[in-house]
Amino acid sequence: MLSPAHIQSKARITAIGSYVPERILSNADLERMVDTSDEWIVQRTGIRERRIAPPDVFTSDLCVKAVQNMVEQFQVSIADVDMILVATTTPDFPFPSVACLVQERLGIPSAGALDISAACAGFVYALNLANGLITSGLHRKVLVIGGETLSKVTDYSDRTTCILFGDGAGAALVEKDEHQPSFLHSVSGSDGRAGIHLYRTGISDRLNGVCLSGEGNIVQNGREVFKLAVSTLNREIPKLMQEAGMSLDELDWFVPHSANIRIIQAVCERIGFPMEKTLFSAEYYGNTSSATIPLALHLGLREGKLKKGNTVLLHGFGGGFVHSASLITWTV
């Protein structure tokens, strides 16, 4: 039996779009809210601004606008989409899913709808799932969205987390194409023991026997998350490239989750990859969890960096602890 790594993909990414709210929360604004400084934030995170959704605007609203941006830019039809996958940790409701809200708002007549909870790795998980659904023959056209309103679950009195998070959404269309597929190789993994280092309380307030704090807001042990992210990517990236039969020299762009610049710098240093060949969305959008990677891709496309035929490595990592990577040929 063939392993997933040796199954020829039949799926192609054909369009991409994004949306961020208008309101900007700058480092100067945060200086007036908590004990911090622009210099400290930029040095530690690479973030200068983040976007904040209004009180009456939610994740589904941002997702819909990202899809509309994609449709307007690429003149694609979504009427025949047969599956909607939304990666989010901040759904409007526990249910109905954001995917169902998007289906209704966009008037897509007949599509499956599923939310994916994989924190900052969610968009890459969703892309890989879309590839599997199409390659297997179960679906032909999948709408993949990563969207968050993290400002609604951020404690703005906690200077260790409020400097990081912002709101935004990105969308991609994945369609059946046996002749020009996008997907070359993928890998996903998890370490549930590390969930205690990055969480948001919900129905339960205990994890691995430990009583949690946070009252529904994000709680993060930054030092442990940093170590987990760097060690995971340092281990998994060379392994993935070897399994794909490629070297890092053949990689045009590396698009990791834009958690903060220091993680990316540390990973690039360890694997010997140039920072100037990475795409980063957090400088002006903040850490938008599942949306950072599609935002970075769309920025790279608009700035003329990302071109058809480029070999691109996407790598998401986050709370769970989960990670997911996808090696693709850029086909948009």
Rank of each mutant, 00 (worst) to 15 (best):
N287R: 07
L198S: 07
N260T: 05
S258M: 15
L207F: 12
L297K: 03
S247R: 00
G272K: 02
A244Q: 06
T288L: 04
F226D: 00
L207W: 13
A259Q: 08
S289G: 07
I293R: 06
H298E: 13
N234C: 05
I263R: 01
E283H: 00
Q242A: 14
M241Q: 07
D252L: 03
N287I: 08
A282K: 02
E236T: 02
E243V: 04
A229T: 07
A282H: 14
K277A: 04
I264D: 11
T292R: 03
N260H: 15
S247A: 08
L212N: 12
P294F: 04
L279G: 07
D205S: 04
V225C: 09
R206G: 00
F273Q: 06
V255F: 14
C268H: 00
S231H: 03
M241G: 10
A259P: 09
S204I: 04
D249Q: 09
L297D: 02
P294S: 02
R223K: 15
V225Q: 04
P274F: 06
S204K: 06
C211T: 13
C268F: 08
D252H: 13
L251T: 08
G286C: 14
C268D: 07
L299K: 14
P274T: 05
I261M: 15
G245P: 07
G216R: 15
Q242E: 14
E283Q: 13
E224F: 05
N208F: 08
E215W: 06
K227G: 05
S204C: 11
T232L: 00
L299N: 15
N260Q: 05
P274H: 10
R223I: 08
E236V: 06
V267G: 14
R206L: 02
R206Y: 11
F226L: 03
M241S: 10
V267P: 14
G202N: 04
G300W: 14
V210C: 03
N234A: 15
G209H: 09
G202L: 13
N208K: 01
G222D: 11
V210Y: 12
L207C: 09
T278S: 13
S281V: 10
L251D: 06
E269K: 15
P238K: 12
F254Q: 09
L240T: 10
L251K: 09
P256E: 07
L228D: 01
T292I: 04
L248Y: 01
I203G: 14
I263E: 00
Q220S: 10
M246I: 02
D249C: 11
N234E: 13
I237R: 07
C211Q: 14
T278A: 12
S247N: 09
T201K: 06
V210A: 06
Q242N: 01
S204E: 09
A282V: 01
L233R: 02
A229V: 06
P238I: 01
C211M: 13
V255S: 04
L295G: 11
A259Y: 01
G209Q: 05
F254L: 15
V267S: 04
A244I: 01
M241K: 11
R270I: 00
C211G: 03
N208Q: 15
N221C: 03
T232V: 12
Q220Y: 11
E215C: 06
G300Y: 11
E250H: 07
G209S: 08
T278G: 08
R270N: 10
L279T: 00
W253H: 13
C268M: 08
D205Q: 13
